[in-house]
Amino acid sequence: MKEPQIIVCAKQIPDPEAPFSNVTVNVEKKQVAVDAPDVISPYDENALEAAIRIKEELGGKITILSMGRKVSDTVLRKTIAAGADALVLLEDPLFEGLDSGSTAHVLSCAIKKIGDWDLVLTGRQAGDWDSGQVGLIMGEMLDVPCVSLARSIKIDDGKLLVEKSVPVGYEMVEASLPALVTVSNEVGELRYVARSKMLGLLRRPMSIPKWNSKDLGCDIDRLKKLQLTELVPPADMGRQCTLIEGAAQDQACRLAEVLSELR
């Protein structure tokens, strides 16, 4: 079998680990602002890790595909430092605020334009809206076998073998290539990337193709924005926290009392 050509779809989002006090809801503009650095959505990092493991075993090429109006080079070069080979960015004002079906349409157009591919991987859901739809819809649009919630992915003799997380454990499934797989965090975290390696890459010029809706030939009438009718902050989740202070021994004594009261 030829070396597998893998495409990993990665979304850039505000760091979902950010303290929630950094999240502001603008009710009037129906917008959420998050004061946090952008990162690659965590499940997409898991997808990249799965891709790198396949490449380590079988060779091949990993292309990162990312859509958004301002995709940060810095963030995405982390994927190169970790082991991806190429980046393709999809940028167009028309791509902003799209619903899941439209996002899947744009990504599918890009995947068809890349042309030579065996496997598309993406996170099970993005860490901002947590919709969990784009991967599955892309599977339909690309008209290929589609497996969700992978905890392990292997290509063996040209066949795709996936361990899929299910409520009672996991299911071994098999499909032919090309295929699409959505990846869950049980795959494992993206390998550590040394900062020096990241910085080295940032200094090196690199050609990153940027495609817009015309380049992709996507059906502009097919692109639908999310229609928000209302956006509100949640009911206050905060509680009054009683801090237990002192040395560890004293804290433990007080905590033991607290726990006894909570019986």
């Binding site: 929630f20 006090s21 989740m237 905060g238 509680r239 009054q240 926290c241 009683t242 801090l243 237990i244 202070e245 560890a248 021994q249 804290q251 433990a252 004594c253 905590l255 033991a256 607290v258 726990l259």
Partner: peptide, 23 residues
């Protein structure tokens, strides 16, 4: 700590063994 009722600022490796002993 913003959502907790009780907060202990410290190292779990000191606090938990002492807590287990106390319980």
């Amino acid at each position: 700590f913003k959502v907790a009722d009780y907060g202990v600022v410290g190292d779990y490796r000191d606090i938990i063994p002492a807590l287990v002993k106390k319980l």
